[in-house]
Design a protein around this nucleic acid. Structure first.
Lengths: 260, 260
DNA sequence: CTAAATTTGTGCGTATGTATA
DNA sequence: GTATACATACGCACAAATTTA
């Protein structure tokens, strides 16, 4: 045998080969046996070392890719990724743009416009903006890169009237900075966090295989009069982002204690 | 052929069979051809209908499972899931417990304690709570179910002194209600959202296969004196939860105590 | 420049295990 | 016990990308 114990074979087993291999590889990455930037043994080497078939190794590798721990390149190998996450703080400070935070994580940020234009709002978008279904709505799509790796896709929906003011600059600036620059106040920002998997369009733009999980933030900016005027979606690589919010709790839980 | 066009075969193709099948099945679910609760055609039927091999169908099905659109049961079939999501609002109102929100989504909530006890804090936990590494810390784990399906796993870390007050009730109640009941005020709640994949322990508790993506919320409760006193983690099925927060934007320097 | 070798990634046919009816 | 169905696993083939001779 030698360095690598073969995985247990199939009789009356309660764990699965791909799962055992997955945790084995995970722990080797975690403990530094496969340090960041290094190449994993080739598929052929792994099948031999662990005594399993190629399809089993492939599955474990794919899960590691979904997890963001490794990245494969055809003809080259599978490499352990360095893992600094972009820490996105949604804190009511429009100065903290996503570009700053990409830089703070040690990457070089880049912004690229995907497309923009007026479309007809579907029912959901219209409802959220308080418009009738089918109303004309301006949509803008752009992408952010970190060290030239696409990490997030940004979609904005707003009324054409607002778009007239902003559209020229949307390709090169981040939305909250723009709103601030034009003195358009936001009274409230409602955010929704969920995860999903890429659609076909997103998989091309983010360079991910079909079925790759993503982290998604939907936000609604509400004006001082209480009406929503801007919808945003951020679809991002889950291995690249953490979102942070602060919620001051001056709600009703206070036992009216005398302060200080 | 007949009703179902065979997928294009391999010559000079730029899309992949599993991906085409994935989008085909997704759209059939979306447009109601496969309504919620119904059974998908068996694996054998799908291989025949689409003219692809079993492994290709399996892969597409697994992605659909990760997506939360379907759920397989051995010996029975693959079923389209009904998709009401639990809408978790973190809004500074401790009365909105997760149990209420599960009920609001149309499910019957259930709570089950997994385990609890005093352990030694690892470096990360200790740092976040302002303790020295290795300090004794109380950990509590429980699970929530929606219609007896496990949907989330909850981990709490707190100092043993605080645990003495709460530990008896932690198994049957939700943490924010408990804090309110015992008049323990929270001044600030810091939340982090990210997605990841299940660990081995989590996969068993949540009944998910290894590698299944999850949505994770880490929160830190901060007392009136400004020091963190409670860490919480919620690991949940991504197809079952949306988290919502409201961020009032009071200009650039937000007054700490607005009124009074 | 071309050809061979290596490596990832998709795909096929088949076998086996396990849960349900 | 028999049939059906999901799920893992094997050996093999081929396409695409990269490196090397």
């Amino acid at each position: 045998m030698s360095r690598t114990a073969k995985l247990k074979s199939t009789k009356t087993r309660r764990s699965f080969l791909y799962s055992d291999l997955l945790t084995a590889l995970r722990s080797r990455i975690a403990n530094g046996s496969y340090p960041p930037g290094s190449r994993l043994p080739s598929l052929a080497a792994l099948t031999k070392a662990f005594g399993v078939s190629a399809i089993t190794v492939r599955r474990a590798l794919r899960e590691l890719v979904y997890e963001g721990l490794v990245q494969g390149h055809q003809g080259l190998g599978v490499f352990v990724k360095t893992k600094p996450r972009i820490h996105r703080v949604l804190a009511g400070d429009p100065d903290r743009s996503i570009g700053d935070e990409i830089r703070r994580a040690g990457f070089v940020p880049r912004l690229a416009e995907v497309n923009q234009g007026v479309i007809k709002a579907d029912d959901k978008i219209a409802a959220r903006l308080g418009l009738r279904p089918g109303a004309s709505i301006f949509r803008h799509q752009k992408q952010t890169f970190a060290n030239d790796e696409p990490v997030a896709l940004h979609r904005l929906h707003m009324r054409p009237s607002l778009a007239r003011t902003l559209k020229k600059e949307l390709g090169n600036a981040f939305i909250f900075s723009l709103l601030k620059k034009h003195n358009i106040p936001i009274a409230d920002l409602r955010c929704e966090f969920c995860s999903a998997t890429v659609t076909e369009e997103e998989s091309k733009l983010l360079q991910l295989t079909a079925g790759h999980p993503i982290l998604r933030v939907d936000y609604t900016a509400i004006g001082p009069e209480g009406s929503p005027f801007l919808l945003g979606e951020t679809i991002c690589r889950p291995d690249r982002f953490v979102f942070e919010v602060n919620l001051p709790q001056r709600g009703k839980s206070r036992p009216r204690r005398p302060e200080r």
